[in-house]
Each structure stands twice: as C-alpha cells, then as structure tokens.
C-alpha cells in the first residue's frame, strides 16, 4: 500500500534488514512474493480490461457477416483492411473529426477554467449563502435530463442557437458542470489553509492565491478533469443529436451512428470508425497521465 512517491520502500526494508542479517532472507522472500502477487493481479485484471479493445480492433478488420459469430473469431478471416478506407467513403469522416475537435476543444477549455474558478470560491472563500448555493449546485445534477430537455430546447431556440455549436459549448463556459466543481472543491479542500495565509501575508491577492498557489497544487485533479471532460465532449451523442440538424455539422459520435439503421447495422464500418474515434482518447490519456500522476511531489507546509 505504499505510494510511489514515498521514499523507495524496498531500500528502507533492506536497510533495516541488513542490520539484522537473520531477517534479511525472509524479508526478501516476502517482498518477492508480494511483487509476484501484484503482477499476477495486474496481469489478470489487464486481460479483463483489454478484452473490449482487442475485440473492437479485431472486429474492425472483419467481414460484416463475421463479427458476431460463435465461437468468436479473434483473427479476422479474411482481413478487411478496406473497412477503414470505406469509412471515409461513406461518411464525411474528416469533416466530423474537425467538427468534434473544435467543439471538444472549446467546451473543454471553458469548462476547466470555469469549474476551477467556481470550485475555488466554494472551497476557499466564505460568503453568506455559500452552503445553500453549494447544495443547489449539487441538486442540479439530480434532475434527470429527460424532463428538462424540452424547456432547454425551447430556450436555445429563443436564443437562436439551434443547429449551431453554441448549445454544445457556451453552457460549459458558465459554471463548468456541477460534477467538476464538486470534484475540484474536494481537492482544494485537502490543501492546508496555511498556504493561503502565507501567501496573503506576502501580499498576494485572492486571485493570486488561486492562480499561483491552488492551481499548481491541484494539477493532478485538473489533469483528471481534462481527461474526463475531453472524453465527455468527444463521445457526447445526445446533445449534438438534439441540437444539430445539418449533416455537415455532425460530430463523430453522431456521425458514426449513421452506420446504424433500422434493424441493420454496418458493424464492421462502425467498429473501424470507433477505433479511429477512440484512438485520440487513448493517446490523450497516455500522454496526460504523466502530467497528473507523476506530476508533483507534494510536501505539506508544516513549519
């Protein structure tokens, strides 16, 4: 249960062990057994987790008729590499890609900026009605969207935003979503208040504290938020479905659904498109995790 950022546990153990030679071997065997067990669990877990992706990948190279047969075929027979080129022939895939990057990028940036500000207000500043407002914030996620859909639609119609990207972007610039505000608030609240006070004594403004003290310390949380918001907007099907009408404006999540039709689906093309849709997410995650997991070694301000 030792986190990676604590001093290397094994060396500590060895140091202790070398003082008592009799214990040394037993410690080593124990450590090795523990390592072996950990790897076993990780490998088994990975196998389970990797399953869908491998399946997705292999399906994307299959013949339409061979996707859901039993027993499952893991190696496509025959290989249909042209599934990938067909995707580009059948739908304006590049266009959808560009649209999605635009919408995701703009919505994500605004959402992170807004949520980090709002969460700071709720976590670090005191003002009348704060607790009540926070409760209101939380309750906004408790009403299922199905019953607010029509009023929201009417609202966006009045604003003249139908068939534009505004409903998919602008609301996120205002507030950033209760989920993320709550998440960041929890992370901010773990940081000692001494940090703020020390900065204040040095003459920092409140915004300065937010910008120079809290944000850098909350980098892991912001990294997580970046990944989660990216995924959320990248894969959002419902909002684009409701607010976009022109096919050229479609996002990927909407566009790849054009491979589905009444009772029949071009699964092989859908899977090939899904692979291409998923790839950036995996790359982003692999890249971003460096940032938010090995990012900082945090030492508390004790003294």
């Amino acid at each position: 249960m030792t986190p990676t950022n604590s001093p290397n546990r094994l060396t500590t153990v060895r140091r202790k062990a070398s003082l008592q030679p009799g214990w040394f071997n037993r410690y080593r065997t124990y450590a090795r057994l523990k390592q072996a067990f950990i790897y076993l669990v990780i490998l088994a877990g990975s196998a389970v987790m990797l399953f869908p992706l491998l399946w997705l990948l292999s399906s994307s190279f299959k013949d339409q008729a061979k996707i859901f047969i039993f027993p499952p075929q893991w190696i496509p027979q025959p290989w249909r590499f042209d599934n990938y080129t067909l995707v580009f022939d059948r739908i304006p895939f590049v266009r959808f890609y560009a649209n999605t990057i635009l919408v995701t990028g703009l919505a994500m940036v605004g959402q992170i900026a807004a949520a980090s500000l709002v969460a700071f207000g709720f976590a670090r500043l005191r003002f009348p009605g704060r607790d009540l407002l926070f409760l209101v914030l939380l309750s906004t996620i408790m009403i299922p969207y199905q019953v607010t859909l029509i009023p929201t639609f009417v609202l966006f119609r009045i604003l003249g935003w139908l068939d534009t990207y505004a409903p998919l972007i602008l609301p996120y610039w205002l507030g950033g979503g209760a989920f993320y505000v709550f998440m960041l608030r929890q992370f901010y609240m773990r940081l000692p208040v001494d940090l703020d006070d020390a900065a204040r004594i040095d003459g920092a403004s409140t915004f300065g504290i937010y910008w120079r003290i809290i944000l850098p310390q909350a980098r892991p949380a912001l990294g997580v938020m970046a990944v989660l918001t990216f995924l959320g907007h990248w894969n959002d099907f419902f909002n684009p479905l409701i607010y976009l009408n022109t096919t050229e404006k479609y996002t990927l999540a909407l566009g790849i659904n054009l491979f589905r039709s009444f009772q029949t689906t071009q699964w092989n093309l859908l899977m090939a498109a899904s692979v291409m849709v998923t790839l950036p997410c995996i790359l982003l995650y692999a890249f971003a995790q460096r940032y938010f997991i090995q990012g900082i070694v945090f030492t508390g301000l004790k003294g």
């Binding site: 859909l149 419902f238 479905l241 909407l254 659904n257 054009l258 039709s261 009444f262």
Partner: peptide, 13 residues
C-alpha cells in the same frame, strides 16, 4: 438524415 437512435425523441422535442 438523422441517426436512428433517438429519432423519435428528437422529433417530439
């Protein structure tokens, strides 16, 4: 042309 999923919901909305 719209996706078949959610077609009826969208139309009603």
């Amino acid at each position: 042309f719209r996706p078949i999923d959610g077609y009826w919901d969208k139309l009603q909305t």
